[in-house]
Design a protein around this nucleic acid. Structure first.
Length: 874
RNA sequence: GGGCAAUUAGCUCAAUUGGCUAGAGCAUCUCGUUUACACCGAGGGGGUUGCAGGUUCGAGUCCUGCAUUGCCCACCA
């Protein structure tokens, strides 16, 4: 009996200690690994002041599995962690915090102070987040951790802007954008959510100039009519054919507006005539551009009516809507009201209604003359230089890139990278120089990393869209363009992200990386799906169905949790998670623990063996289990290379539990072979380590003589082909079949598993094993009673002395049923083999397996026939 | 409206890309506390792979149509 080891692995007592050992070893830092080969994965940065959620957890698990596998394969592995400043979200959160605690808004603090305090707030929260990330066991190099607002990361982002400006890819333009009146900033389309709501469609009559006729338009936002620039109809719409080219009088404003024809109008909606408000609707803006309509801004940044709105000035949009409807009714111009579903745009962060406004913003031209971000990215994605997991998402990205429009990158918030743009009014003398070009702007613009010299320069107050900087994350964190890390680790090998941010992030990284570094940023792009609850619902606060990863780790252990988010999960596919599932993986961890506990405790001198020789394999069981082990090693390695985590793990689990624990260990109790045991334990600990790092490291420390050695740094096992034996496999399968048949017979006759049956060996090796595994006792062949039941396989046979229990009819029926089944299979297979098309069409190996199969069916039929004869004799 | 994905045992999912009798876990039923493990072991039941066609020697896998569900994009005056 070896040393005492507890029956169960207590994860909570070990994990922190093990993590500390890993960190102290210094091997999370690739500088301490000597190798010519490298592997790099820049981790997507979570929000610095967020909580770790399941999305992070599943992504990190994937990244760490590959990272640990590559490290064990002998590469310098860099998993580079970071934190994101999360622009708008953090500003909203922090401003709420100071308002709650100090009763002041950000303006009271001032821009500089607000930025500084937000920074400190984020840094403090980062520590908390980092602690949570470590609980997952992620083997990242924390000494290299980056924050999106770090000076070096910032510098790269600003440089990109300056370079783009120089290349004519940046312009400042008046465009219609999504404006959040509450956050006070422009939002990109992806920051806007759409919500179905009940609304009203109002029919309003617009009088025609010099006529008694009206044209009736339908609108859900009557207040925008103050800014109407036209009424539009479809050119083919017969109802309005005569109206085109006429002039309507805009009610309330008494302004003359043209009636125009445009194909973008849907004849079947409302009246078929539409009021056009270029300043307050994206589609109207487009139509306005085509027809060169004026843009009357009647709603301001606070969602109130402007001076142009006349008597409604200062009212918010809802007040104005009410008053306008009343006034229209008084004039008799308001027609029917219709209830409709409208899709309302709301701010992703604060949920307030979005106002489409025309605003001066900075844009990136995605298809500029000098360099097309879009075309270059499309080339790279189509070209197959990036592996997609799953492959199907490549198409989606291509489609998204194709539809890409110019990218609004300015945000009117304080928390972020401020644009490196300064402006000042031109001096009079300079104005003269422009030779009367009236279009020339009155202001002078300077774009550069350092503030310009001279006076009166004012820096643009806007900050960058977060994606502009995080789109550069893959190289800005590595010290582009001249740092050692950049030269060594770029392009990176792997990028893992949630499928939901595929278009926004991955494509931006590809575009910006190609532009600046001329290289694709990563070779493999792996997507995780969404983790849902047991009933398939999204986890959300409002539904209160969320699972907190840290609670689960505390309860079931980090390893079990990790398995639960990656097992049976394919890339890009949603999966479901619930406690029972995590529990079942915890049970597996206990199993693994006890397998090793058995090995270590059985033998006082237990040692791990990295190598064995053929001479160490004496019995059939040993030859078989080692053969399986080597095949499993190869399969797991191949599957990991193909980035198929789920199948790799399934294969490993099958070997560990079904083959090793259920069969070999039971046999080992009779034929102990310390060398074989030590070899298998050594190998499975290594194979399991990327999947379940904590428990395997813990066991390794118990099993290994040299306590200082880390499993994390051991070499990934090779598959020893010379131990793979088809013969051992077949022979052991036959042995297993015999044991299972005896067990089945017991089951059929309700003989307790504990009760020993007397048996007589006819043709069978491994007698002692059969005695143990099937709970039988062999007696000398001379004592065979007249009535016995025979158990036969192709190679083995024996008889059981349970004739007093035998129900001959039942037994015959069972055997006849099996024979019929075998007969059916044999006929089917034979028919295939007689089919000339099959013989010539199918691969040779396939044909061979069917030939073997047929032979096997026939042999089995003979065996059953023998049994039948015996039964008739009873 | 356009696109994508999914539909396999009661539930959650596999099936190595068209080839061995479609497999696991959970749940369920029977039996059992054999000194690694009851967080366990042995055994059983449970499937017309959503529906209808097609291609093929062979289809869960490929094609067409339909149905249901989910996601993304666009539109919603």
């Amino acid at each position: 009996m070896g040393k005492e080891i507890p029956k169960q692995y207590i994860s909570s007592e070990s994990e922190d200690i093990i993590y500390e050992r890993w960190e102290k070893s210094g091997f999370f830092n690739p500088d301490n690994i000597i190798s010519a080969k490298k592997y790099c994965n820049v981790l997507p940065p979570p929000n610095a002041n967020g909580e770790l959620h399941l999305g992070h957890a599943s992504g990190y698990s994937v990244m760490d599995i590959f990272g640990r596998y590559e490290r064990m394969s002998g590469k310098k592995v860099l998993l580079l962690p970071g934190k994101d400043h999360a622009g708008i979200q953090t500003q909203v959160v922090f401003e709420k915090k100071i308002r709650d605690e100090r009763g002041i808004g950000r303006h009271a603090l001032g821009r500089v102070r607000f930025y500084k305090e937000s920074y400190e707030f984020c840094k403090k929260s980062s520590d908390y987040m980092r602690g949570q990330e470590k609980k997952l066991g992620i083997s990242a190099d924390w000494s290299r951790e980056k924050f999106t607002l770090d000076s070096d990361v910032t510098k790269v982002a600003l440089e990109t802007f300056v370079k783009m400006y120089g290349d004519g890819m940046i312009y400042r333009g008046r465009r219609i954008i999504n404006w959040c009146p509450h956050c006070g900033t422009a939002l990109s389309d992806v920051e806007v959510l759409h919500k179905e709501e009940d609304g009203k469609l109002y029919y309003i009559q617009y009088p025609i100039k010099n006529s008694k006729e009206f044209i009736v338009v339908a609108t859900t936002r009557p207040e925008t009519m103050l800014g109407d620039a036209a009424v539009a109809v479809h050119p083919k719409d017969k109802n309005y054919f005569n109206f085109i080219g006429k002039t309507a009088i805009l009610p309330l404003q008494e302004r003359e507006i043209p009636i125009i024809a445009d194909r973008r109008i849907d004849m079947d909606f409302g009246t078929g005539a539409v009021k056009i408000t270029p300043a307050h609707d994206p589609v109207d803006w487009q139509i306005g551009k085509t027809h060169k309509l004026p843009e009357h801004q009647v709603i301001n940044e606070e969602a109130r009516i402007t001076r142009l709105g006349g008597k409604y000035k200062g009212q918010n949009v809802l007040e104005a809507r009410k008053n306008i409807l009343e006034d229209l009714a008084k004039l008799g111009l308001l027609g029917k009201e219709e209830s409709v579903k409208i899709s309302k745009s709301i701010c992703e962060r604060c949920k307030s209604a979005i106002e489409p406004l025309i605003s001066k913003q900075w844009f990136v031209k995605v298809d500029a003359e000098k360099y097309s971000l879009k075309q270059e990215a499309l080339k790279a994605v189509r070209g197959g230089k990036i592996n997609f997991y799953p492959e199907s998402l490549r198409k989606i990205m291509i489609q998204w890139l194709n539809n890409l429009e110019d990218w609004c990158i300015s945000r009117q918030i304080w928390w972020g990278h401020r644009l490196p743009v300064w402006q000042k009014l031109k001096a009079k003398s300079e104005k003269l120089k422009v030779n009367g070009n009236k279009k020339e702007s009155k202001t002078e613009t300077y774009v550069g990393l350092e503030p310009p010299k001279g006076e009166d320069w004012i820096q643009d107050p806007d900050t960058f869209d977060t994606w502009f900087s995080s789109g550069q994350w893959a190289y800005s964190t590595l010290g582009y363009p001249d740092q050692l890390d950049y030269r060594k680790y770029y392009p990176t090998d792997m990028m893992v992200m949630g499928r939901d941010i595929l278009p926004f992030w991955a494509s931006r990284m590809i575009m910006l990386s190609l532009y600046r570094t001329k290289k694709i940023p990563f070779k493999n792009l792996y997507f995780t799906g969404l983790i849902r609850d047991k009933d398939g619902f999204k986890m959300s606060k409002s539904r209160d169905n969320g699972i907190n990863p840290l609670e689960m780790i505390k309860k079931f252990g980090s390893d079990a949790f990790r398995l639960s988010v990656i097992m049976n999960v394919s890339p890009g596919q949603d999966s479901r998670l619930y406690e029972e599932k995590i529990e079942s993986f915890r049970n597996f961890i206990t199993k693994l623990w006890n397998i090793c506990r058995y090995a270590i405790q059985t033998d006082e001198n237990f040692t791990l063996f990295e190598k064995i020789t053929r001479r160490d394999l004496k019995t059939l069981a040993e030859k078989w289990i080692i053969s399986e082990l080597e095949e499993t090693t190869k399969a797991v390695t191949d599957l990991l290379k193909k980035k198929n985590i789920s199948l790799a793990q399934e294969r490993l689990r099958k070997f560990t539990w079904d083959d090793f624990a259920d069969w070999y260990i039971e046999i080992n109790k009779l034929e102990n072979n310390p060398k074989v045991l030590g070899y298998i334990v050594d190998k499975i600990l290594k194979l399991w380590h990327p999947f379940t790092p904590f428990v395997t490291e813990k066991i390794y420390s118990l099993a290994k003589k040299d306590k200082e050695k880390l499993l994390m740094m051991e070499r990934w096992p090779r598959s020893e082909k010379k131990f793979v034996s088809q013969k051992a496999k077949e022979d052991f399968a036959d042995f297993k079949e015999l044991v299972i048949k005896i067990r089945n017979t017991r089951g059929n006759y309700h003989i307790n598993p504990g009760e020993t049956i007397v048996a007589f060996s006819e043709k069978s090796g491994e007698k002692d094993l059969i005695e143990r595994l099937a709970k039988v006792k062999f007696l000398a062949i001379a004592d065979v009673p007249a009535k016995v039941i025979h158990i036969k396989t192709r190679k083995r046979s024996l008889s059981l002395d349970i004739s007093h229990l035998i129900d001959v009819k039942k037994e015959i029926a069972a055997i006849e049923a099996e024979m019929a089944n075998l007969e059916k299979l044999a006929q089917k297979t034979e028919a295939m083999l007689n089919n000339q098309k099959f013989i010539s069409g199918a691969a040779k190996e396939v044909v061979d397996t069917y030939r073997m199969k047929l032979k096997e069916y026939r042999e089995k039929i003979v065996v059953q026939l023998g049994l039948l004869k015996n039964l008739y004799g009873l």
